[in-house]
Amino acid sequence: MGLEDQAAVKRVADEHGSGVVVLLGTPDAESTQTLAQTVVAGDPSYAGPLAGVPLGLPVFHVFEPEVRDQVPADVYEAQVALMEMSLDRDAILAGLREARRAATTI
C-alpha cells in the first residue's frame, strides 16, 4: 500500500474506532497478502505510517463467497464478476488466508 494511503487508512480507523472492516479488490496473491498484513499487523516494509501499528482490522476480499453472498447478484455481476473470471481467484484467496494465518501467530 502506498504511504499516503496508509495514512488515510490509519486516520479513518482511528476516527471510527470499532466496527471498521477492510474490503479488498486486489488483483493477485502477493498484493492481497501485503495489503491484508498491513491493515492487520502493520506495514511489512516498515516504511509507512502503519509500520509497527497493528490495527487488527478484519479484512476480506470481494471474491470471498461470504462477501459475494451478501451483495445483490446483479450488483456483483456488474462490479466484480468480470475480474473474478480474469484474475486468479484461488491464488488471491490463498494469499488472504496466509495473511490471516500469519496475523494469528504474532
Binding site: 500500500m1 487508512v9 471498521v20 477492510v22 474490503l23 479488490g25 486486489t26 466484480v80
Partner: peptide
C-alpha cells in the same frame, strides 16, 4: 459495518 474499500486499478 464501516467499510474501508481498498481497490486496485487492474483488479477491482
Amino acid at each position: 459495518k464501516k467499510v474501508i474499500a481498498l481497490g486496485e486499478r487492474d483488479g477491482v
